[in-house]
Design a protein around this nucleic acid. Sequence first.
DNA 1: GACCAGGCACATC
DNA 2: GATGTGCATGGT
Length: 228
Amino acid sequence: MTIHPYLRGSILQKISNSIFIDIYKRLYKVYGRQHWWPGDTRFEMMVGAILTQNTSWSNVEKAIRNLKKENALSSAEKLLRTNGRTLARLIRPSGYYNVKSKRLRDFAGFLVARYGGDLNMMSRRETGELREELLDVKGVGPETCDSMLLYALNRPVFVVDAYTRRIFSRHKLIDGNAGYHDIQRLFMVNLPADHRLYNEYHALIVRLGKELCRKNPSCERCPLNRLI
DNA sequence: GACCAGGCACATC
DNA sequence: GATGTGCATGGT
């Protein structure tokens, strides 16, 4: 099993070689392929990662449609040239529009300043270095950063979100108040470092979370029952 | 009308 | 380091 470079030196906990794979197989069997991340370009995916912070994807879609209509998503430079108030108006459906307007501009500013807005240049960088740079951008936290790395740049970095924490703590595989990186490490130590696997796995977790756990917290129909 | 959604930064203790 | 709070829309 390949351990991702940025996890080297961490205290690793290996629970079981198979349970994380078994869960994945069960979810894939029940729900099938999820075709994540929605988005026509890598830049659009990264913008979507910021817009979807604590927000449903259906609202993000509306915001992205508005941005495309105004041609603000064609490049980082273009987004950066869109003034803050205009941007806030366009992304209004995605909520927190003033905060997210600033976050998008900060992120676009980073891409332009650091890589001339060129994602090909960005993608030549090593994952651990990219991760540190992204986390330095205000408004890009661990989940947003890892979503960008996994879905836009195809890096084998497991994305942990509220559904992951809720579902796996409910099934007693993680401590309910474990930190982001502890949970991430647990998945990455127990799974091969494969971006396609991480992509589908996270999408399936979100699918399960939406499908079942909110409407049915007792989870008697949960596909993971009798597996864990 | 309450609750929730594919978080994050910042203040305070 | 842990905990609380502001940010805001749209769907159920």
